[in-house]
Design a protein around this nucleic acid. Structure first.
Lengths: 214, 214
DNA sequence: TTTATTATGGGTATATATACTTAAACCGGG
DNA sequence: CCCGGTTTAAGTATATATACCCATAATAAA
């Protein structure tokens, strides 16, 4: 690692931020570490001056990591954003890649991995935790036999949300001022697109993909 | 803070552990910090010598924080265990209190809060993050009008899990070698006990309460 | 021992969801 | 302009879930 760098940590957990900051200061004494507690704050921080590296959490209040990454990359496609993920965030991998993240780190990585990632990304390369590569490859195997990516229309998403709250097709129709039969059709489309067999699997899909929040 | 203390950090995220360790070493230079990456490791660590303070994450692989806390408190009811929680772990608050945790810290606390918590708990007192107290009080309000605590039988839980995977009552009956009608009745009990109107709400309940994992 | 709960199974009826089909109106991109 | 997808709607049929009722055996709790 050569000269002084500015590193922005974006995470909603103060303890995690503070700890990581100390960690980075210890291994990279010349670096300048700044912090933001969510995606929106991060956006404001980078408008004046783009840091050399951004370590971005995914699950955050106000604005999540995916959206924030997307907007930062819009401002500057060269921005070096490394996603900080936990096990369980698998469904966001592709979204983050799509948004323009240059690297992926698991939160249970070793400090060496973080330094490696920063080094690689600063050189214009990409960096992925081994575990993440493994997980992605495992998903690729799945996708051979299953569906790659599903696109739900806005109406379908709307209906899906209502289904999850426990409304019947009749009730959904009443709320949306459309026929129950139309809702039947949307539901059928949802079952087919998500390869679900019934309501239970549909709700599970909605939760796994983040269509609805707990 | 007076003399030298031993502090055990139990968390599955290496980065978090390392960061928190640096943080504690910075503010408590005389302390000895040791680490475990899950509840089972923690158990092994404390059998020889009980640390003065244990900072315990809740969601961990192999053995989670609740179970680990329960077993450590069994060994030594005086053990000073402080739970480290995230927003979203609300459903575990009561379990952790029940298990014997002496304090509660949110992962987005300030370092000062951590020192406070350690100080208080070492003096035999309890410590709770303000946000946690707030959340608990808010839930108390809810419980006035809603359901206090629901107890599902093991058979019901078994059926509920299968429902969530998308099996029909007939299929569940076949798997459990019981009549479809029996499953009908279990399902009806589940709907009543969980105050659900239909399958969708049932699945939502299962996920919110952690009956099933994603 | 009495009592309560759970697990088991069934009768009957209705409500809802699911499967298959067709089709009209609309809207945006090539 | 036509084409593909979405949204709307409906016919018809079956499968499944839900709502009541009841009953018995085993087990745990009081």
């Amino acid at each position: 690692m050569d000269t002084t760098k500015t590193i922005l940590i974006v995470d909603d957990h103060t303890l995690f931020r503070n700890g990581l900051k100390l960690l980075l200061q210890h291994y990279l004494p010349d670096s300048v570490i700044i912090e933001s507690s969510n995606g929106e704050e991060a956006l404001l921080r980078v408008t004046n001056k783009m840091p050399d590296i951004i370590l971005m959490d995914i699950n955050m209040p106000v604005m999540n990591g995916v959206e924030s990454t997307r907007k930062i990359i819009e401002m500057n496609p060269e921005a070096c954003i490394i996603a900080l993920t936990m096990h369980g965030d698998e469904s966001y991998y592709y979204q983050m890649i799509d948004a323009g993240a240059k690297g992926f780190l698991l939160k249970n990585s070793k400090p060496d991995d973080v330094l490696d990632a920063i080094k690689q990304v600063c050189q214009g390369k990409h960096y992925f935790s081994e575990e993440i590569l493994y997980s992605v490859i495992r998903n690729l195997n799945k996708n051979d036999t299953e569906i790659p990516d599903i696109q739900l229309s806005s109406r379908e998403t709307e209906v899906l949300k209502m289904i999850c709250t426990g409304l019947s097709n009749q009730e959904i129709g009443d709320k949306l001022f459309i026929s129950k039969r139309t809702v039947d059709n949307h539901r059928a489309s949802l079952l087919e697109k998500t390869q679900s067999k019934n309501t239970a699997q549909l709700v599970m899909y909605a939760i796994k993909t983040g269509v609805i929040k707990l």
